[in-house]
Nucleic acid binder design. Structure first.
Lengths: 199, 199
DNA sequence: ACTCCTAAAACGAATGCTCGTTCTCTTATT
DNA sequence: AATAAGAGAACGAGCATTCGTTTTAGGAGT
C-alpha cells in the first residue's frame, strides 16, 4: 500500500518526449501508415512494452504528433496579432512565413502537417481538431486585418473575415509551392505579394 | 501464331477505367495506405487476377490515381491563360476557384491531391511528377501576369514569376481552408482577395 | 546505512490477423 | 485450336497488439 515506487514526473515526461520525437522522425520518413510500431520502437531505442505504456495504440501516437504539427504555429501567430503597435499586414505575413521557413525543412514539423490534412479527411476527431486550429489561425489574421482597417491600410467597409482568409491563404499556398516545387524563396515570394497588392 | 484472340481496345480501356474509378472511390474513403487491394477489387466487382492484369502492383494503381488527381486542372488553367482578350487576374482566379469548387466535394479528385502531396514526400518519382505539374500551373499564372503587365494591371517592373507565385498561392490556400474548416465560400473569399488587393 | 518488499516500469517472445502478391485453373474470343 | 482474359484459393511476410516475465526504484523496518 504505502511503498510507492515510482519514477520522477520528469522522467515520465522525458520518456514520452523521447517516444514522440522518435515517432516524428519515422513519420517524416515514411508517413503515418507506412511506419510500423517496430520502426518507432527501434528509433526510440526502447522496447515494445515501454512504448505501449505511454501510447496505448498507434492512433494515440498519431494524434499526439498531429497536434504538435498543427498547433505549433499558434503562439507565433498569437504574438504577432497582439503586438503593439499593430503590425502592417505585409510585415505580419513576412513574419509568419519566416516561421514556416524554419519548419519546412526535412526535419520540420510542418511536413507532417501535410499528412495530417490527409488524415483529417477520414478521421472525424482529427478533422474537428484541425478545423478548430485553422479557424483559430484565420481568426488571428482577422484581428490583424481589423487593426489594419483602423489604420487605413485596408478599406474600413471590407469584410475583415474574408480579407483574413485571403491573407491566411498566402501562407499554406506558399508553403506548398516551396515543399513541392522548391520555389520561390521567401523574399521573392514576398516581393510578388507586394506587387500583387499594388503597394 | 495467327489466331489472336483478344478483346477490343475499347474493352481494355473500359476495364482499366473501371478499376481506376473503383480505386478512386476507395482512396477517397480510406486513403492510399489504408485501402487494401481487396477493397479496390470488391469495389470494382472484379477478381484479384483481373485487377492485377491491369495494374501489376498497388503502387502502379496509386500512381495512376495521383496523376489523374494532380493533372486534372491542367486544361482549365491552360485555357484561361491562352484566352483572348487577356483575362483580368481576379477574374482568372475566380474561374480557377470555380473549377476547384467542383472538385472539392466528397467525390472530387482534389481531395486525393492532398494525399498525393503527402505521398510525394517519400516517393521521389511522384515528387518529380508533382513538382513538374505545379511548376507548370505556376507558369500558366505567369503568362497571365505578363499579359496583365502589358495591360497596366500590374506594374511593368514587377517580377512576373513572383507575382504568379502569389496569385497561384491563393488557390490551394483557399482550397485547404475550404476542405479543413468548411469556410469561406468562393464569393466571400474572392471579395476578400479583392479588398486585400485594394481594387 | 543496509536489506527487504512491493509495485511500477520495462522487456520481448508470442499471437492472431491482414495484407499484397503469386499461381494454377477455367472461361471467352477469334 | 490457341491464347488472352478472368477467376479465386493459397501463401508468406509483416503488422499491431497482448501478456507473462524481469528489472528497477525507493520507502519501511531494523
Amino acid at each position: 500500500m504505502y511503498p510507492v515506487p515510482r519514477v520522477s514526473a520528469e522522467h515520465l515526461a522525458a520518456r514520452r518526449r523521447q517516444i514522440v520525437e522518435a515517432a516524428r522522425r519515422c513519420f517524416l520518413r515514411e508517413g503515418f501508415h507506412r511506419t510500423t510500431m517496430q520502426d518507432v520502437i527501434a528509433e526510440a531505442g526502447l522496447s515494445v512494452g515501454a512504448v505501449y505504456r505511454y501510447f496505448p495504440s498507434k492512433a494515440d501516437l498519431i494524434n499526439a504528433i498531429a497536434e504538435e504539427a498543427v498547433g505549433g504555429a499558434e503562439e507565433v501567430l498569437a504574438g504577432i496579432a497582439r503586438q503593439e503597435p499593430p503590425v502592417p499586414l505585409i510585415e505580419a505575413l513576412g513574419r509568419v512565413l519566416a516561421y514556416v521557413e524554419t519548419q519546412a525543412g526535412d526535419e520540420g514539423v510542418l511536413r507532417i502537417a501535410i499528412q495530417v490534412w490527409g488524415e483529417a479527411q477520414r478521421d472525424p476527431a482529427l478533422a474537428t481538431f484541425v478545423a478548430g486550429k485553422y479557424a483559430g489561425f484565420r481568426h488571428h489574421f482577422e484581428v490583424l486585418v481589423r487593426r489594419a482597417q483602423r489604420g487605413g491600410e485596408i478599406p474600413a467597409d471590407a469584410d475583415a473575415e474574408a480579407v483574413a482568409a485571403a491573407l491566411f491563404a498566402l501562407v499554406p499556398g506558399w508553403f506548398l509551392q516551396l515543399i513541392l516545387t522548391g520555389a520561390p524563396d521567401r523574399d521573392t515570394y514576398l516581393a510578388g505579394v507586394r506587387a500583387l497588392l499594388g503597394r
